[in-house]
């Protein structure tokens, strides 16, 4: 049997439906990049589809359209979020380039973009920031509630090198030129809660946040010294 015949019979049985599940999956995958296989499948669909005339109409027992619509809209909302995160990433990349160009920040510390950078209406009281290392996996997720002025940092995929610790920082014009320490994240595997009661909500709203990797016990200089993870604050919609 030639290759051509093999492909034709594979396509024929795929359309007929007699291939086993593994083989069906392989064909599904192959047809996306094998034009001759895909064309053979289309030809067999054309040959055999007149048999569809033998199927009799059956009414589903209830109107399923509302459920279908909900599934589609659920999937679409998720897709929108992905687009939003993607846009944020691109904005962040631009911001980092700017930072490097001006050298305005300590080279070791990458911090969140200003909250006011987002078209955030005054009523937004809760924000989250996702901290990435090297734009890959999220390392920490931080949430902040302006009413209680509580900040919670949840490790996602952060691992702590031996003899090191993570340190949280806040920076704001009102606090002076240097970032101010918000303390250490003692444990890289459980959430850490910090009260930011000493800061007023307006300051927090416009502050920038960062997490840096420091020697055990925290930065010896009072300023971030080690490699840092950057994040951005996103208003939480209700």
């Amino acid at each position: 049997m030639t290759d051509r015949e093999d492909i034709d019979m594979l396509a024929a049985e795929y359309v007929l439906g007699t291939l086993d599940p593994d083989m069906r999956r392989i064909v599904d995958e192959r047809r996306s990049h094998e034009d001759d296989l895909n064309a053979a499948i289309a030809d067999w669909e054309k040959r055999l589809s007149p048999l569809n005339g033998h199927y009799r109409d059956e009414m589903p027992s209830r109107d399923l359209f509302p459920a279908i619509r909900a599934r589609i809209e659920g999937a679409r909302a998720q897709a929108d979020n992905i687009v939003e995160i993607d846009l944020l990433k691109r904005k962040l990349a631009r911001w980092r380039i700017g930072t490097f160009a001006t050298g305005a920040l300590a080279a070791s510390l990458m911090v969140a973009v200003l909250v006011s950078d987002f078209a955030s209406p005054v009523q937004d009281r809760q924000f989250v920031a996702v901290f990435h290392r090297d734009d890959t996996q999220p390392a920490f997720v931080m949430s902040i509630d302006l009413d209680t002025r509580a900040v919670i940092i949840r490790p996602v995929s952060a691992t702590l090198p031996e003899g090191k610790t993570y340190q949280l920082w806040i920076a704001s014009d009102q606090l002076g030129p240097a970032p101010k320490s918000l303390g250490l994240l003692e444990n890289a595997s459980v959430p850490t809660t910090r009260s930011l009661g000493e800061f007023d909500p307006a300051l927090l709203r416009n502050a920038t946040f960062g997490i840096s990797l420091e020697p055990e016990g925290g930065s010896p200089t009072g300023r971030p010294t080690g490699p840092a993870i950057h994040g951005r604050l996103i208003p939480v919609k209700h």
């Binding site: 199927y55 109409d57 059956e58 399923l64 359209f65 279908i68």
Partner: peptide, 14 residues
């Protein structure tokens, strides 16, 4: 959906 669901359901149910 409303114009085609009976046709497709006939296929799936069979």
């Amino acid at each position: 959906y409303h114009a085609t669901s009976a046709k497709l359901f006939g296929i799936v149910l069979r």
